[in-house]
Amino acid sequence: MQKRLLLDSQLLQITIQRLCQHLIENHNDFSSTVILGLQPRGVFLANRIQKVIQELEGCHVDIGYLDTTFHRDDFRRRVVPKKASETRVPFLIEDKAVILVDDVLFTGRSVRAAMDAMISFGRPTKVELLVLIDRLYTRQLPIEANYVGKHVNTLASQYVEVGLKEQSGDDSIWLMNIKVE
């Protein structure tokens, strides 16, 4: 099976640092900005981003977790249904800027579902999207990310496998030729 390493532990750390610097440039002290991590892996990234920004800026960053399962457009169209995870948004996002955080941007459908799920918690002034990996030329919806860790050219048949140390004990992101179940 062919696979290519996209980001290793050290590169991932540098990438997150860079993304955080970029966020701080645009959002100052995060007093009117909140971060929403998409379940499951966007949550781990959101946690890391929150930690880095709080260390760099010494300010508090509100963070929530969003599960999109009930808002997806492929319900009943998947062979194996997705299982819902926890949604925890302990604040209103009314009149805030929201940064959605996810691991991989592929078709754009998860992000559409996330925006749908997000409006249950209020009307934000602005919504931005941060992703670690942007798979180019694979979008099925007009959705693009504002902050990208790494752009990757991929075929639709390929699969980006994200391993994060919170989950698998090791940070490594691979491009695989076949999806391994």
Binding site: D67, F70, H71, S120, F121
Partner: peptide, 18 residues
């Protein structure tokens, strides 16, 4: 699954489009 829906029905907008 009910745990997740209990969370949904306690939100300001209590509806999901599933």
């Amino acid at each position: 699954t009910a745990d997740n829906f209990k969370d949904v029905i306690n939100r300001p907008i209590k509806r999901v489009p599933s």
